[in-house]
């Protein structure tokens, strides 16, 4: 399983690229390559990570410029052929701008940058990113963002529900989904979604930031290990 190769894209302004590398390679033992945004070679990666950060300074709109980076052409082709892609935080914003996932991320309703641990109810336990973690259906994962307020129109929301594309919702530690546990105003507490084919995941919380046992929380490992178990099976 550790033969799985991850590619972590590095945009100007990415700041979770090394966290992802550390979690995947040093802690979990996967092969990991950095993929520079100006290149177009995915270096035979099995899974592409678009990391968190502030690509291109978040100018214009979050993810708007990064989406046209040369590497993204290859990432979009890869995703359209069924390749596994995960966008975390700013990576999620880039996936939305690229049209690989539906909807948009607005400014947090509080107008504050929110940086804290949140609980996520796992809404879809039959995705490549969650299958096998059923016995832990509430994950504790940190968020850190100013623009994580997910919005989609009713038509898109219904489509997301009909296709079981909503993977994570903000919840209480017991998995109760309510407005009280919504950190940013996201419609229906949505924290992470997949595309129709189930090979592209976008999520605001940072699983790479909770993999190291020294931090007393390794829930992030569950997601990366689920991917490793699922995409080779």
């Amino acid at each position: 399983m550790n033969e799985l190769k991850f590619g972590v894209v590095v945009f100007p302004g990415s700041n979770c690229d090394h966290d992802a590398y550390y979690a995947l390679n040093k802690l979990l033992g996967f092969k990991v390559h950095f993929l520079w945004h100006k290149e177009n070679d995915l270096k035979e990666s099995d899974v592409i990570i678009l990391p968190g950060g502030f690509s291109y300074g978040d100018y214009l709109r979050t993810g708007a410029i990064a989406r046209f980076s040369p590497i993204m052409k290859s990432v979009i082709e890869f995703a359209n052929k069924g390749g596994t892609v995960i966008g975390i935080c700013n990576g999620f914003q880039i996936l939305l701008e690229a049209g690989l996932l539906p909807g948009v991320l607005l400014r947090n309703i509080s107008l504050n940058f929110v940086c804290k641990d949140v609980y996520l109810s796992v809404e879809n336990t039959d995705s490549n990113f969650t299958r096998g973690i059923e016995d832990k259906n509430v994950l504790k994962i940190p968020i850190a963002h100013g623009e994580g307020n997910y919005f989609a129109d009713d038509y898109t929301l219904n489509e997301l529900k009909d296709n079981n594309q909503i993977v994570f919702k903000y919840s209480s530690d017991k998995g109760k989904v309510s407005e009280k546990h919504n950190p940013n105003g996201s419609v229906e507490n949505i924290a992470g979604i997949i595309n129709k084919n189930g090979n592209v995941l976008g999520m605001m919380p940072h699983p790479e930031r909770c993999c190291d046992p020294v931090l007393k929380n390794t829930d992030g490992q569950l997601i990366f290990n689920a991917i490793a178990n699922n995409i080779f099976n």
């Binding site: 291109y56 300074g57 100018y59 214009l60 708007a64 410029i65 989406r67 046209f68 980076s69 040369p70």
Partner: peptide, 14 residues
Amino acid sequence: DPQGKAIEIGANHL
């Protein structure tokens, strides 16, 4: 205007 310059990189890629 760094923002304008960065956006123009996107325009060129487009």
